[in-house]
Design a protein around this nucleic acid. Structure first.
Length: 445
RNA sequence: GUGGCCGUAGCUCAGCUAGGUUAGAGCGCCAGGUUGUGGCCCUGGAGGUCGGGGGUUCAAGUCCCCUCGGUCACCCCA
C-alpha cells in the first residue's frame, strides 16, 4: 500500500512522452514562426516581486495571483514578497522599463513560457499554462502599421501549425466606444460594462445581450441599432473597408480610420482574406487594451473558444517609467490549443523523438549493437539502444508503442556478415543491409 | 468568490430507483500460445477496504447525515 496518492492538482496539464513530443513540436513551430518575422527571444523569471506584479492590475487579477513564500517566511508570519507571473505582458512591461536604455525601439520580442492563474480550473481553463506572446513596443508613438504586423505573424504561425482554417477577428475599442457614444451611453463604468456584454454576443446570443443592454439603461431602439451594428462580420477586405468607411465620422472616426490602415497593411503583408474578419463585437475583457483588439477561433470548431488574442495598449509601462511606451501584441494559449485539439481528435500526426531502436537478443551482441548505434548517431539519427537482452517480440512491441519507426535487428547472422536487418514498423517490411550502406538506407526511407 | 451535478478496477461505465449468495463488463496492462519479428486472434492472470467517516438495519456499493475530492456554469480569461 502506498502512503501517498500520486496525483497532480487540477488545472495543470501533464503529458505522456508521445503527446509531449507533439506539444513540443508545436511550440517549436510557433517559436520559429515568430523568429521569421524578426521578433527577438526574451525570457523573464517565473517569480516576480509582488510590488512589480500587482501595480497596474485590478482587483480581479489580484485574486488570481499565486503568492510565493518560503517556509521560513511563512513560519514568521511575513507577507509574501514574491508571486508567480500570471501573464507575460506585465513582466514584459517591467523588462522594457528596466532595460529601456539597452534596447532598440521599436522593440519586438517573442516569449514562450508557462504562467499561473489561481482560478477554478475548468475545461480549457488552466492554472498553469503556456503563453506564446509577441509584442512590439515603441517610445512615445507606435505606428498603427504594427497592429497589422502582429496578426500577420500569428496567421503565418497558425498556418504552419496546420490545424485547419481559422479566423482572426479584429476590432477597435475606440470604434465600439464610439458606437456606444452614438447610442447615448457615455462615461464609465457604463461603457465598459456594456462592452463586456456585447463581447459575449457570439457566446450567449443577441437576445441575452439585448436584455443586458436594456438592463444597462439603454433605450430599446438604441439597443437594436447597436446590436445590428456590432453583429457585423465581414468576409472580405473590400467589405471590411466599406463598412469602416460608412462608420468613419463622429465619435467612431478615430477607430475606423485606424482599423482601415490596419486592414490595408494586412493586405500588403499578403495575409489571405479568409484568415481575418472585421468583427465589431470583439472587445476583450482586459481593461488595458485601448485600440485594436484581436480574437482568434478555429473555423470548424468555434466551440473551442479563443485560442489566441491580444490588442493594443497605449501605455504599457506607465507604472515603471516616465517614458511613454505604447505597444501591441498577441498571445497564443498553447496549453488550451493543444488540449482542445486533442479533445477534438485534431492533433497533428504523431511525431517520435526517436528514429530507431537497436534491439538486443543475446549478451554476445552488445558490442556490435552499440557500434551500430554509434554509426547512426554520428549521422544525426536519433537512436535508442537496449542494454539488456530481451525477447525480440517485446522489443518490437515497445518500439511500436513509442512510435519509433525503425527497429534494427542484429543477431549472430548479421554480426558475422557485418550487416543489420532494418525493420520498418510502420510499413511492416524489412531488409538486411551492410553496415556501410546503413545510414544511406535509413535516410532514404 | 457564488451556484448545480457526480464519486464503483489504470480508463469508460453497469449494479443503486424495489437493501440479501464470493462486486461485474469493455478497453488497457502482464504472461503464454510463437526459443529472431510488433499490430490481429486465442488462453490465462494481476488489479477494487464500491472516495472517507458516522448512522438506520439481522444485513448497506445500494437508504440517511457529515466530510473530502472531482466536475460544470457564473465571474474573469489563453
Amino acid at each position: 500500500m502506498s502512503p501517498i496518492t500520486p496525483r497532480t492538482m487540477p488545472g495543470v496539464l501533464e503529458l505522456l512522452p508521445r503527446e509531449q513530443e507533439i506539444h513540443d513540436a508545436m511550440r517549436d513551430t510557433i517559436r520559429r514562426g515568430y523568429a521569421r518575422f524578426g521578433f527577438l527571444p526574451v525570457e523573464t523569471p517565473t517569480i516576480e516581486r509582488t510590488d512589480v506584479l500587482l501595480t497596474k492590475t485590478g482587483g480581479e487579477t489580484e485574486r488570481q495571483v499565486y503568492f510565493v513564500q518560503s517556509a521560513g517566511q511563512l513560519e514568521q508570519g511575513g507577507q509574501p514578497e514574491l508571486a508567480l507571473a500570471f501573464d507575460l505582458t506585465v513582466p514584459l512591461a517591467r523588462y522594457v522599463a528596466e532595460h529601456e536604455h539597452d534596447l532598440n525601439f521599436p522593440f519586438r520580442r517573442y516569449q514562450i513560457q508557462r504562467v499561473y492563474r489561481g482560478e477554478r480550473a475548468q475545461r480549457g481553463r488552466w492554472r498553469e499554462f503556456y503563453q506564446c506572446d509577441i509584442d512590439i513596443i515603441d517610445r512615445d508613438e507606435l505606428s498603427v502599421r504594427h497592429d497589422a504586423e502582429i496578426p500577420a505573424t500569428i496567421a503565418s504561425v497558425l498556418d504552419a501549425l496546420d490545424i485547419g482554417d481559422f479566423t482572426i477577428r479584429i476590432n477597435d475599442r475606440r470604434l465600439m466606444r464610439g458606437l456606444l457614444e452614438e447610442a447615448g451611453v457615455t462615461g464609465e463604468p457604463a461603457q465598459t460594462d456594456l462592452i463586456r456584454e456585447i463581447d459575449k454576443l457570439d457566446k450567449i446570443g443577441p437576445e441575452k445581450v439585448r436584455d443586458a443592454l436594456l438592463a444597462g439603461g439603454m433605450a430599446s431602439g438604441a439597443a437594436d441599432t447597436l446590436l445590428q451594428q456590432t453583429s457585423t462580420r465581414t468576409t472580405s477586405a473590400e467589405e471590411a473597408l466599406a463598412t469602416l468607411s460608412d462608420l468613419g465620422s463622429g465619435p467612431t472616426a478615430a477607430g475606423a480610420d485606424s482599423l482601415s490602415e490596419v486592414l490595408r497593411v494586412l493586405a500588403d503583408l499578403g495575409v489571405p482574406e479568409m484568415r481575418y474578419s472585421l468583427d465589431l463585437s470583439i472587445a476583450r475583457g482586459l481593461d488595458y487594451y485601448t485600440g485594436t483588439v484581436y480574437e482568434t477561433t478555429l473555423d470548424d470548431h468555434p466551440e473551442l473558444g479563443s485560442i489566441c488574442a491580444g490588442g493594443r495598449y497605449d501605455d504599457l509601462a506607465g507604472q515603471y517609467t516616465k517614458t511613454h511606451l505604447p505597444g501591441v501584441g498577441m498571445s497564443i494559449g498553447l496549453t488550451r490549443l493543444f488540449f482542445q485539439l486533442r479533445e477534438a481528435g485534431l492533433l497533428p500526426a504523431n511525431i517520435s523523438a526517436i528514429d530507431a531502436v537497436v534491439t538486443l537478443m543475446d549478451e554476445d551482441g552488445l558490442g556490435y549493437a552499440l557500434e551500430v548505434a554509434s554509426l547512426l548517431r554520428e549521422a544525426g539519427i536519433r537512436v535508442e539502444t537496449r542494454m539488456e537482452p530481451d525477447k525480440l517480440g517485446r522489443q518490437l512491441r515497445n518500439a511500436d508503442r513509442a512510435g519509433i519507426r525503425f527497429a534494427l535487428i542484429d543477431g549472430g547472422a548479421e554480426r558475422s556478415a557485418r550487416t543489420t536487418t532494418v525493420r520498418d514498423l510502420d510499413e511492416g517490411t524489412q531488409e538486411t543491409v551492410p553496415l556501410d550502406h546503413l545510414v544511406q538506407h535509413l535516410k532514404h526511407r
